[in-house]
Amino acid sequence: MIRAGVVGASGLAGGELIRLIVQHPELELTFLGGSSNIGRRPAELHPGLRRDLGLTVQPVTAEVAEQVDVLFLATPAPVSAELAELMADRVPAVIDLSGAFRIRTPDLHARWYPKVRRRTELADRFVYGVPELVADQLADAALISLPGCYATSMTLALAPLTMGLGLDLKTVVVDGKSGSSGGGLSLRTTDLHPLRNGAIAPYSPTGHRHAGEVRDFFERSKPGAVGSLSMSAYGVSHVRGLMTSSYVFTDEKTSQRDLHRAYVRFYRGKHFVRVRRHDETLIPVPDPQAVLGSNYCDVTVLYDEENSRIVVLAALDNLIKGAAGQAVQAANLRFSLPEETGLTMQPVMPA
């Protein structure tokens, strides 16, 4: 068995990690870490977890390295930066769910994460962990930085155009909508039910840090290029699930048929990306409610011939494919397991 530890066990992503690990046939949960809930059991923190795991939340020290083979950091970015420094070269694999190491370029990192201090040489060692795109790099990675939930959706939406077809995308404009769980458990006035329920809240209308990491990733990925990439993000009233709509402008000629075929070809054999036709089901897809509770990302590509515009829609569960599920998927690849191990659950609908 592969011994797994979760730091940030009291958060939403931490709770999902616990749930996925305890039902995983090859992972054994051996450590729970945190700072504000020392001594508490998982069932106290997450009402859905009633199984007695024989573990309580403990402080994180260097000795934790002796208890785990893989350590998941479901912690805020400043905390992850400190813990990665402590655990690097002590634990065989550290998988960070925060934004501490997502952006490789120092100036861009400083712009979007000004309070996160890290060593450049440590950041350079992290693999940006989109499993469908960098599986070969995950096979022996000691340090893995998972993309953000929006960034996962955007990257999977755009990769067939850049990394597959090698297109130069002159301008990309992204509209993102996410449920309240994307903000975690921090108490903010804007997240109170009387204000959040029924709302479409433009909380990042002129830019989002997840767009920064996507741009940073594609600048290091060939062929193809992304010129301008901008994003507006909105909070909507459901709890979990998100969708990105990427509007792509390019001077290169294409067609609806060629685009759909390119996406199917690019993701052939990729278990967790489902390329879908917009009108193939009773409701138009992608739709976040069609992936909730699963590790799937549904992607649809459309061509607006009149305006020479490519539209790519992508939907996922932000707590699973956008966080805990993708973390387990990366761990599977790191330890040479089939990537779908422990992640075969189907979506729950309606949810």
Rank of each mutant, 00 (worst) to 15 (best):
M1T: 11
I2W: 02
A4W: 06
G5W: 01
V6C: 06
S10H: 10
L12S: 07
A13G: 04
A13V: 14
G15Y: 00
G15E: 03
I18C: 04
L20I: 07
I21M: 09
V22E: 08
H24G: 05
L27Q: 11
L29I: 03
T30I: 01
F31C: 01
G33R: 01
S35T: 12
S36A: 10
S36I: 01
N37I: 02
N37T: 12
N37P: 00
R40Y: 09
P42V: 04
A43E: 13
G48S: 09
R51H: 11
L53T: 03
T56Y: 00
T61K: 07
E63V: 06
E63M: 03
A65S: 14
V68E: 00
V70Q: 02
L71D: 05
F72S: 04
F72W: 02
A74I: 00
T75M: 01
P76D: 06
A77I: 03
P78E: 01
S80R: 02
A84K: 01
M87S: 06
A88D: 12
R90Q: 10
A93K: 05
D107R: 12
L108Y: 04
L108C: 10
L122H: 00
L122M: 01
A123G: 10
V134E: 02
V134T: 09
A139S: 07
A139L: 11
D140A: 13
A142H: 12
A142F: 06
P147M: 00
T152V: 13
S153V: 04
M154S: 08
T155Q: 08
A157C: 08
A157P: 06
P160D: 05
D168C: 10
V172Q: 04
V173T: 15
V174L: 08
G176D: 03
S178G: 13
G179S: 09
S180C: 08
S180I: 11
S181V: 09
G182K: 03
G182P: 00
L185E: 12
L185D: 13
R188E: 15
R196S: 11
A199T: 08
P205R: 04
G207E: 01
H208V: 15
H210R: 03
E213L: 02
F217C: 02
S221E: 14
P223S: 07
A225M: 02
V226P: 05
V226F: 05
S228E: 13
Y234V: 15
G235A: 12
G235S: 14
V239T: 10
R240W: 01
G241F: 04
L242K: 00
M243T: 09
S245A: 12
S245Q: 13
D251C: 07
E252L: 01
E252W: 00
K253F: 11
D258A: 14
A262P: 06
Y263H: 04
R265D: 14
R276Y: 08
R277A: 12
H278N: 12
H278E: 15
I283Y: 11
P284S: 11
P284W: 06
V285M: 12
G293M: 07
N295F: 02
E305A: 14
N307G: 03
R309C: 15
L313V: 08
N318D: 15
N318Q: 15
I320S: 10
G322W: 05
Q326N: 15
Q329G: 01
A331E: 04
L333W: 04
L333P: 07
R334N: 11
F335A: 00
L337N: 06
P338F: 03
E339K: 02
E340P: 10
T341M: 08
Q346R: 14
P347W: 02
M349K: 13
P350K: 05
